[in-house]
Amino acid sequence: MTTLITIFLVLGLSVLFTAGLRTASGTDLADHITNPQQRPVLGGSDPKMHAWQRFHVRYYTMTLVFVAFEMEMMFMYPWAVVFVEEGPKALAEMGMFLTILSVGILYGWREGIFRWE
């Protein structure tokens, strides 16, 4: 019962705190934000097109290699702990896992990720 009261008390307090913050945060948020104020800051210039755009994330191959090696290590630590108990079964599992990951690494290699620029 005490736990339940505590939960409701904390919940009530957090609602009160949020409501208080929202009230105290001034009139700016409550007011209507006009169109001239919504304009992005370009130092006085007017944008002719919407800023929503697609551009190439040039570091994506680097991310791929990072994820490949990081996932490898994440699995290897627990694997090393159970390897002695499980024996060849664990070895086969790790072999399969590394094969799948190496596809990503090979793809990165083909994309020229290991070439120093």
């Binding site: 370009l42 130092g43 210039s45 097109m49 697609r54």
Partner: peptide, 20 residues
């Protein structure tokens, strides 16, 4: 894109004259 010809969105805008 002039680097590799990849066609993605080109954003054009005027910047200034009061940009810090």
């Amino acid at each position: 894109d002039f680097r590799d010809g990849l066609e993605l969105d080109a954003y054009t805008a005027d910047f200034g004259p009061f940009l810090p």
